[in-house]
């Protein structure tokens, strides 16, 4: 009996020692995988690099600042074009999958924790981002926010934590989102599910019109959560003596008018004025490029997106230089 008990305790010790070694090896292995083989959010590493390089300007944005059309000879991003025009300064861009100032706010908070802060930030505001669509499941950036908030070692375990549902990476369910009200101006015209269904996409005229309405035609006010994030970013920048260069990115108003009519101009102009009034209250100049480019500058005329071609990117880079950097 005593021998059995001894064997059992001996086995238990052996097992736990082996388990500790095994867990340590898994932690090392996971660190290697997440750091070097498949980094899930390389943008954080990029931000660290900007800090190390003492990059002077950080340019926020989404795919628009990186997109290059198939016919573009010069595939440079807007930040690269800006760097060429302004060779004496260093500009680093950081983008995510959709204009959403909440994630920009998180990125900025992360930048502020770094040892070398930039002198200025460039913040594009897209009128597209006031659509109810940004409240949908695909635009909550749970992964990015997790990476920006957590210590580095914890971020290496993002994927397993997400697989085993230890972190909620689906904070918004489509079933809830689809019931959000959609407005045309101030008038309720339906719910998000009527306009934004991931299972049904059609390129007929009525479907595209509905998408333009859904994307741009909602009346906004200063309490909009995007504008709250904008306020927070500017306040944080002011506190840290970082300049904020804010501009309204071009939208394809030609197509908007084609599908929605002149109401499109009225509504987007009104929305742009609300954004600029928020900036004015903070003494930040508002560069409104929303209506600066006709559809010839856009890469995709059908679906409402703001991807500009080479000419469009060059135009934006020049305007930023003239309005902000050359002053």
């Amino acid at each position: 009996m005593k021998r059995l008990l001894f064997m059992s305790v001996f086995n238990m010790k052996k097992f736990f020692y082996q388990l500790i070694i095994f867990i340590a090896l898994i932690v090392i292995g996971q660190t290697i995988v997440a750091r070097y083989i498949t980094p899930y959010y390389p943008e954080r590493l990029l931000l660290d690099k900007y800090s190390r390089d003492k990059t002077r300007i950080i340019y926020f944005g989404d795919s628009v600042i990186k997109y290059a059309g198939p016919d573009d000879k010069d595939k440079s991003t807007i930040a690269e074009m800006l760097s060429r025009i302004n060779p004496t300064t260093t500009i680093g861009d950081i983008s995510h999958g959709g204009y959403y100032l909440k994630i920009d706010e998180e990125v900025f908070k992360y930048i502020l924790k770094s040892p070398n802060k930039p002198e200025a930030i460039i913040l594009p505001i897209n009128l597209h981002s006031f659509s109810p669509g940004v409240k949908g499941p695909g635009y909550q950036f749970e992964k990015e926010i997790f990476y920006l908030r957590m210590p580095r070692l914890v971020t290496y375990f993002y994927k397993p934590l997400a697989i085993f549902k230890a972190i909620n990476i689906n904070t918004v369910k489509y079933s809830d989102y689809s019931q959000l009200p959609v407005y045309y101006g101030k008038e309720k015209i339906g719910v998000a599910g009527d306009f934004d269904n991931p299972y049904v996409y059609s390129s007929d005229t009525e479907s595209v019109r509905k998408l333009y309405v859904f994307t741009f035609m909602q009346d906004i006010d200063k309490s909009h959560e995007q504008l709250k994030s904008l306020n927070n970013i500017i306040d944080l920048a002011n506190k840290s003596d970082i300049k904020s260069y804010v501009y309204l990115t071009p939208i394809n108003f030609d197509e908007g008018v084609k599908y929605v009519g002149l109401d499109f101009i009225k509504q987007t102009t009104a929305n742009a004025e609300v954004v600029c009034s928020v900036l004015k209250e903070k003494n930040i100049p508002c560069l409104n490029l929303a209506f600066s480019l006709d559809s010839g500058y856009f890469a995709s005329p059908i679906y409402p997106n703001e991807h500009v071609n080479e000419k469009g990117r060059k135009f934006i880079a020049e305007q930023i230089t003239k309005f902000f950097l050359n002053k």
């Binding site: 095994f22 090896l25 898994i26 292995g29 996971q30 995988v33 997440a34 498949t38 375990f157 994927k159 397993p160 997400a162 697989i163 549902k165 990476i169 689906n170």
Partner: peptide, 17 residues
């Protein structure tokens, strides 16, 4: 084999329900 299997589980799974 065990370590590769655990790392595969930790990295190759899906994150939806």
């Amino acid at each position: 084999i065990y370590i590769v299997a655990v790392l595969a589980i930790m990295n190759l799974g899906v994150t939806f329900e």
